[in-house]
Amino acid sequence: MTQPSGPHDLGGLDAGPVDLAEKDTAYWEWQIDAMIRLALQKGLLTDFAELRDGIERLAPEDYEKLSYYERWARSLAYALVSKGILQQADIDQTIAALRQRQAGR
């Protein structure tokens, strides 16, 4: 078989039993999902392919470690920063502020 083209290219690989447990979607996951839909609607992303491209660029260990919507967040950040829509410094500052707000509650 041809080598997988990235950490996402899973079809046919060896893997364990399927975990059939149902999992609820946390509110922050719905928020990230909605943000992606809106980013597409507003033209911040040209197509879902752009989001997927960023996910496929993740290091294999990150792809494995991150949850589904964490991958989306990571990929959107990559797209928005590389397009100059957001600055990395502002993102870092906002994360720090979010942490502080959480700690203060």
Binding site: W28, Q31, I32, M35, E70, A73
Partner: peptide, 16 residues
């Protein structure tokens, strides 16, 4: 959410 990447997502949301 407390994970780094969940907070990254919420930070993007707030900035947008």
């Amino acid at each position: 959410p407390t994970s780094d990447d969940a907070l990254l997502g919420l930070a993007l949301r707030e900035l947008l």
